[in-house]
Design a protein around this nucleic acid. Structure first.
Length: 295
DNA sequence: AACCACTTCAACCGCTTTTGG
DNA sequence: CCCAAAAGCGGTTGAAGTGGT
């Protein structure tokens, strides 16, 4: 006995939506809300399955959808978030207001992936290809190097978090690091400061961290509240709250250890040390980079 | 103008996760 | 705790559009 099919009715329409169907759906949802997607088509008088209605609404008809091409900043953000989150399109989309997971997935598969490949960066790992790797030879552009730095920082921090989970969990039921640690960090004040500084720092090439530590020009990022969730407290985050709920974590984030050269500090520093001066300008014009033959 | 190859993106499919009884 | 239904998600598909010959 298998799973019941989502749409039993054989007369259900498939394929592209027509303007009349869109109108019916919009009118119905504006009037009644979507309620149960499964029963919506019947109530609204649509010959579609609920799943199809939900998809049409969330990916196309929702009023807060931002149409049009992605901006350079959005593309950068997608790449950065993909390095953190992998193919978790919904989580990535939640960081880009008005953009849908489907749209971001398409952007990635049709544009960004190719650009990274052309740069000699593995879109899966965000690491430069090694000489023994796939067909593309690595290029030593600052952006490429930075992505490699980023990825190793990520792995390093993951390893450290595993250690910390072990330390805090007694007995440890799960030592799997919360995959959303970085997203929370990204959403934290640190991430926000970074994003702001990254935008402002076009005139000052140093990373926010180095600015904070060596200059007062842009203020300090120390002592801020970081919402990295319950990971450091040793609990594993339930999946339902994995991306959205901010959980306050004090700046003692790395102070559980007194090591001055804490590896998570290194990771944090690298997190904040994304290329300033628009080092991802490759997005604007891939052709300005020496292009491998297959690009 | 006709054909073909390639690209894009909306929509579908099937699996997983969440929710509620 | 268990189970079924509903919702959510990511991978894949295929029609439409575009560019080259």
């Amino acid at each position: 006995m298998g799973r019941t099919p989502c749409c039993e009715r054989k007369d259900l329409k498939k394929g592209p939506w027509g303007p009349e169907e869109d109108e019916i759906l919009i009118n119905y949802i504006n009037k009644h809300g979507h309620g149960s997607w499964r029963s919506l088509p019947k109530l609204a008088g649509l010959r579609r399955c609920g799943k199809s209605c939900r998809l049409r609404w969330t990916n196309y008809l929702r009023p807060d959808i931002k149409r049009g091409p992605f901006t350079l900043d959005e593309e950068k953000l997608v790449i950065q978030l993909h390095a953190i989150l992998g193919n978790r399109w919904a989580a990535i989309a939640s960081q880009l207001p008005g953009r849908t997971d489907n749209e971001i997935k398409n952007l990635w598969n049709t544009h960004l992936k190719k650009r990274l490949l052309c740069m000699g960066v593995d879109p899966l790992t965000h690491e430069p290809f090694t000489s023994g790797g796939p067909t593309i030879r690595p290029r030593s552009s600052p952006a490429t190097r930075h992505m490699a730095q980023w990825e190793s920082a990520r792995l390093e921090a993951e390893a450290r978090l595993s250690k910390e989970s072990l330390f805090f969990n007694s007995p440890p039921t799960s030592v799997k690091p919360d995959p959303d640690f970085f997203l929370r960090l990204w959403n934290s004040e640190v991430g926000e400061s970074f994003r702001k500084l990254n935008g402002e720092a076009k005139t000052d090439c140093r990373s926010p961290i180095s600015q904070a530590s060596s200059s007062t020009k842009c203020g300090s990022v120390s002592g801020v509240t970081i919402d990295v969730g319950p990971i450091a407290a040793g609990s594993s985050t339930p999946k339902s709250s994995r991306t959205e709920d901010p959980i306050i974590f004090d700046a003692s984030f790395s102070s559980c250890s007194n090591e001055s050269e804490d590896s998570s500090d290194t990771a944090l520093q690298l997190l904040l040390d994304f290329p300033i001066n628009n080092d991802m300008s490759f997005l604007e014009d891939v052709d300005t980079y020496a292009t491998p033959p297959q690009c």
